[in-house]
C-alpha cells in the first residue's frame, strides 16, 4: 500500500511534466529537450524566492510558474520559431545546447546543492495503512486537476481545438489560415508553465537543484513515448504508471535497479504496442 502512494507521488511529478511536453510536442512538433529546464526554473525560483527574498510559498510557486512560462515563450518565439527549417535532429541538438547553457547559468546563479523549500506543510495522513505526507497529496491532486483542466482546454475551447487541429494536420491548419506561430507560442507557454508548476510543487517535498533539468526531460520523453504521443490523458496515466513501476520494482525487487524498471517497461511497451500504451495513432 505504501508503495502505491510512493509511486503515485513520484508519478504525478512525471505526469505534470510529461503533459506539458506532450502539448508542446504535438502542437509544435519539436523535440524540446529543454523542457526539463522549465521544471528546474519552477523549482529553483520557488526555492530562491522563499529562501532569499522571504516570499511566502504560494506566491513563490506562482512566480516559478510565471518564469517557467516566460522561458517557454522565449524558447518558442526566440528559438524554435526561427529554426523551423532545421531537421528534427538539428532542433534536438539546439535544445540540447540550450540545456547546457541554461544549466550552467543556473549553477552559476544558485549553486548546485539539492534543496527543499522551507515552510511547506509537514503533516502526514495515515490512509489505509499508508503514510501520505500532505505535500504528496497536493502534488497528486495538482496533477489530476491539471490533467482534467488540460483535457477540457483542448476539447472545449477554441484555442484548444485549434491546437488539436494543428497536431492532427499541421499543413492543413496552416492552409486554413490559422496563425500557427501564435498557437505554437501558446502551447509552449502552457506546456512550460505546467512544467514550472511541477517544479514548484516538487520542491515542497523533494529537492530541486540547478542541474536537475535534463533528468526531468529524459523521464518526460520516456513517458510520452510509451504512453503514446499526442494524448494528454495518456501522458497523465503514463507518468503515474512509470512512478508505480519504479516504486514497486524498487521496493520488492531491488532498489539498485529502480530506474531500470521504468526502462524495461518502456521497452516492453514499445515492442508490444509501438504506438504507445494509450495511443491509437502515432505522430512519429
Amino acid at each position: 500500500m505504501q508503495e502505491l502512494v510512493n509511486g503515485l507521488a513520484q508519478g504525478s511529478v512525471y505526469s505534470l511534466t510529461a503533459m506539458g511536453l506532450v502539448l508542446i510536442f504535438s502542437v509544435v512538433r519539436v523535440p524540446n529537450f529543454a523542457h526539463g529546464e522549465a521544471v528546474m526554473f519552477g523549482g529553483m525560483l520557488t526555492l530562491m524566492s522563499v529562501t532569499s527574498f522571504g516570499l511566502p510559498l504560494l506566491p513563490a510557486i506562482l512566480l516559478g510558474v510565471v518564469v517557467a512560462t516566460a522561458f517557454g515563450l522565449v524558447l518558442s518565439v526566440g528559438v524554435f520559431s526561427r529554426v523551423k527549417d532545421k531537421s528534427e535532429i538539428g532542433q534536438l541538438m539546439i535544445s540540447m545546447a540550450i540545456v547546457v547553457i541554461v544549466g550552467a547559468a543556473a549553477i552559476q546563479l544558485w549553486g548546485d546543492e539539492a534543496r527543499t523549500v522551507p515552510g511547506a506543510p509537514s503533516m502526514t495522513f495515515l490512509v489505509a495503512g499508508a503514510y501520505v505526507p500532505v505535500t504528496w497529496a497536493i502534488i497528486i491532486a495538482a496533477a489530476l486537476l491539471a490533467a482534467i483542466g488540460l483535457e477540457l482546454f483542448v476539447r472545449q475551447t477554441t484555442a484548444g481545438r485549434v491546437m488539436r487541429a494543428m497536431s492532427l494536420r499541421p499543413d492543413a491548419a496552416k492552409l486554413m489560415g490559422i496563425p500557427v506561430d501564435y498557437y505554437q507560442a501558446m502551447a509552449f507557454a502552457i506546456g512550460s508553465g505546467l512544467a514550472g508548476l511541477a517544479g514548484g510543487l516538487y520542491v515542497m517535498a523533494f529537492p530541486a537543484q540547478a542541474s536537475m533539468g535534463h533528468i526531468m526531460s529524459l523521464k518526460s520523453f520516456v513517458v510520452i513515448i510509451f504512453a503514446g504521443m499526442g494524448s494528454i490523458s495518456g501522458a497523465f496515466f503514463g507518468g503515474l504508471l512509470l512512478g508505480l513501476v519504479e516504486s514497486f520494482g524498487g521496493s520488492f525487487l531491488s532498489s539498485g535497479y529502480t530506474n531500470s524498471f521504468g526502462f524495461v517497461l518502456l521497452l516492453a511497451v514499445l515492442l508490444l504496442k509501438p504506438n504507445g500504451l494509450f495511443g491509437g495513432r502515432s505522430n512519429a
Binding site: 513515448i225 531500470s260 521497452l267 512519429a284
Partner: peptide, 25 residues
Amino acid sequence: PIILRIRGLHFATATLAIGMIASDV
C-alpha cells in the same frame, strides 16, 4: 530485430533505455 521495428524518437528512446539499463547493471 526487436527494436529496429520502430524508428524516429521511439527508436531513440528504446536505445536510451538499453543504455540506462546497461548503466544500472
